[in-house]
Design a protein around this nucleic acid. Structure first.
Length: 695
DNA sequence: CTTTGCAATATTTTT
DNA sequence: TATTGCAAAG
């Protein structure tokens, strides 16, 4: 006789998903179980936004949706990876197969597949900002604008103008009026340059960051069959950090979901910090109006930070121009208010951070649970020196990336021409490195290469034999051929290039000694890749960050302190957060002061930074900008610095923070916490004396 | 044509 | 301060 035996679902799945409801608040539950149609989730900082996305993915997959039919567009690939990893923990490895990435990387993949519909080569090159600038420079001379008597904008400015046109979908005239009115005289020239720029890039299959979005939008809007194919493939589309999308991205999201209209966007208008890049918060505010029947879900309970931290951040955001109705609240009680510390010099600030980090570690807070945040890349320079001296390992996010160093770009250029031999920007770079080759010769050579559709043999043409640099060209060609025929890892390819490149490096950079270790660590990174295209795409779209342990890769897995620009800290959280340089002119940045909207964005920046903290928040303000460090005339005109205007509002300094006063080890603390003028002057003299000693 | 050396000039945040 | 632009020398 056969007996039926009921097999229950896997316990993991059962417990995880059945407990779901009890683990989520009603609003979160609504968002997680939302299925068809459009939905806007307004998610305040720390309100479990990631959790909602993760659980929704798990929920959909569990209900039988093929993971590949879910598209998750995030701001960084790191965010996507983290989310899918967490989803796999909740459910199973099926979640790892969810499609996703950044708008740009998604565009890169789709455009390669459908390149012929746009007249592109599938091996197109992605230009970073400085590559675009080089192309602009090339065109500027080609059109003869370098000979204009009056001062023509520099390549950097031109790139900014053209990029703003794309990202904000404006005419050149409008951009000039708004941000560069003094260049309005050149309107005609800039327009001509723009036309030639776009034509040029298309003809050589060079795409800058903006083009990736432009061409994806073009593909989706002009090819209905492709749009339907793609939109039917991705039945559920989710966009994270929607407040930081620009109008192109919003349009793309809507085109991607045109067949089924299943589009969920998640974001928080008070965390919009990318308007300088064309992000438009109206995308998120206007979403319900543009999508009929859109469901709006608000998540307002904060699960991340303690109430005292939220008391501070609520106050900061309350001063914003745009009214924010949200007031975040938390059940995490704590006696500890955020700490505000005025240090005397920048170096004192660094020493405070080092000491505090060491103490926190003593208290059992892991190093990767601590982050130091700041407004721009070089704000951490002094701290980095101090950290290295104390042997604290760290990773730095944001600021200058190491693939942007010119010697690394040189090597990348050699790889790039192997992938797309029409890549004239890379050719220019490669050729200018050769002794005896200047802009003119390089231009001629590139022309030869392009006319034979990228054959390397154009480098060793008979009529070049007499030129003195001919032997160099032969070597170059042999190297590139060897790389192209190398079927090993990218590390091996770089080794081949390095053999050829090392003498050039020594010849070309007088500080070549310092650059050699970089090449070695670049090679180590490249060792992980086998596919040239994948490597190049990743290097331009998700380049590796600079870390202290890159220098000695022995202890790779050890804990590291995070240093990060506030922009790169978006979406992340730490147990303890220290914010540097809360000085008026740094945050808000001096350059934002003319426009109230920009100051408002700086305020949101502070808001984002402060809401990263779970338990401890330290706000630091050095009083004196060190002379001789950083920006010359900033320090010269400033000297003493005022605390950021965002902290002087209301009762923040009196009530929302606990002020710490630094005292030297040997002196007992005085009753009056304020520094007397005499003391202050003593400090100044001590400081100046110390400083002149160093010189 | 290239290279070199001097003068001017603009400085954030990122895919 | 670092980078770019310009002019003169090689």
């Amino acid at each position: 006789m056969t007996k039926s035996y009921v097999l229950k679902p896997s316990t993991r799945e059962a417990t995880e998903l059945s407990n779901l409801r009890s683990e989520l608040n009603p609003a979160q539950w609504d968002a997680v179980t939302f299925r068809e149609g459009s939905c806007l989730v307004i998610a305040g900082a720390g309100s479990g936004k990631t959790r909602v996305l993760v659980y929704r993915v798990a929920y959909l997959v569990n209900s039988g949706v093929d993971p590949e039919q879910i598209l998750l567009l995030t701001f960084t690939r790191r965010a996507a990876r983290e989310m899918l990893q967490r989803a796999s923990l909740v459910l199973d490895e099926r979640c790892g197969r969810v499609s996703g990435g950044t708008f740009h990387s998604f565009a890169s993949t789709l455009l390669r597949r459908f390149s012929k519909h746009l007249g592109l080569h599938p091996n197109f090159t992605i230009l970073d900002r400085s590559d675009s600038e080089d192309v602009i420079q090339l065109i500027r001379t080609e059109l003869g604008f370098d000979k204009i008597k009056k001062r023509f904008p520099r390549k950097k400015t031109l790139q900014q103008i053209l990029s703003a046109c794309v990202n904000k979908q404006l005419e050149i005239e409008e951009v000039l009026e708004k941000s560069h009115p003094h260049f309005l005289d050149f309107l005609g020239e800039i327009e001509a340059l723009q036309a030639r720029f776009n034509e040029y890039k298309l003809s050589l299959s060079l795409l800058d960051y903006d083009d990736l979005l432009v061409y994806l939008k073009l593909l989706l809007s002009t090819e209905p069959r492709i749009r339907e194919e793609i939109s039917s493939k991705y039945r559920f589309v989710m966009v994270d950090e929607y407040q930081d999308t620009n109008c192109l991205q919003a349009r793309i999201a809507s085109l991607l979901s045109s067949v089924h209209k299943n589009l969920m966007v998640v974001g928080d208008d008070s965390q919009s910090i990318y308007s300088f890049r064309g992000a438009d918060f109206r995308n998120i505010m206007g979403f319900p109006k543009q999508n009929e029947g859109c469901k709006v879900i608000k998540l307002e309970e904060n699960y991340r930070s303690t109430q005292p931290i939220l008391d501070l951040t609520n106050e900061v955001i309350a001063g914003a121009l745009r009214s924010h109705e949200k007031v975040l609240y938390s059940r995490k009680k704590s006696e500890q208010k955020p700490v505000y510390v005025e240090t005397f010099s920048e170096n004192e600030q660094s020493r405070f951070v080092v000491q505090r980090v060491l103490e926190l570690r003593e208290e059992g807070v892991a190093l990767n649970e601590i982050a130091v945040l700041f407004r721009n890349g070089w704000h951490s320079n002094d701290l980095e020196v101090e950290l290295s001296a104390s042997g604290i390992p760290f990773v730095k996010y944001g600021g200058i990336k190491f693939v942007e160093a010119s010697h690394i770009k040189d090597i990348l250029a050699h790889l790039r021409v192997c992938h797309n031999p029409m890549d004239s920007v890379s050719w220019l770079r490669i050729l200018l490195l050769l002794e005896g080759v200047g802009p003119q010769t390089a231009k001629d050579l590139i022309e030869r290469i392009v006319t034979v559709r990228g054959s390397f043999d154009a480098l060793v043409d008979k009529d070049l034999e007499k030129r003195k640099f001919f032997p160099l060209l032969e070597k170059l060609r042999d190297t590139l051929v060897a790389v192209r025929e190398c079927h090993g890892t990218l590390g091996e390819m770089i080794l081949i290039i390095d053999q050829y490149y090392r003498p050039i490096l020594k010849n070309h950079y007088d500080d070549f000694q310092k650059r050699i270790p970089d090449i070695d660590s670049f090679e180590a990174i490249a060792e992980r890749y086998r596919d040239l295209e994948e490597f190049l795409v990743e290097m331009s779209l998700e380049p590796p960050e600079r870390s202290q342990t890159d220098v000695d890769p022995l202890d790779k897995d050890q804990e590291q302190l995070t240093l990060s620009t506030i922009h790169s800290a978006k979406g992340l959280e730490w147990h303890s957060v220290l914010i540097l340089h809360l000085v008026d002119g740094f945050l808000p940045s001096e350059r934002s002061l003319e426009s109230p909207e920009e100051v408002d964005e700086e305020r949101r920046l502070l808001y984002v930074a402060a809401t990263r903290a779970r338990e401890n928040l330290y706000l630091l303000k050095p009083s004196l900008q060190s002379p001789g460090r950083g920006n010359y005339y900033q320090s010269a005109t400033r000297g003493f610095q005022m605390v950021s205007r965002f902290l002087t509002e209301g009762d923040i300094l009196n009530d929302k923070v606990e002020q710490w006063r630094l005292v030297p080890e040997d002196k007992p603390e005085k009753k009056d916490p304020r520094r007397s003028t005499q003391e202050l002057m003593d400090d100044v003299h001590r400081f100046l004396a110390e400083h002149s000693k160093k010189k």
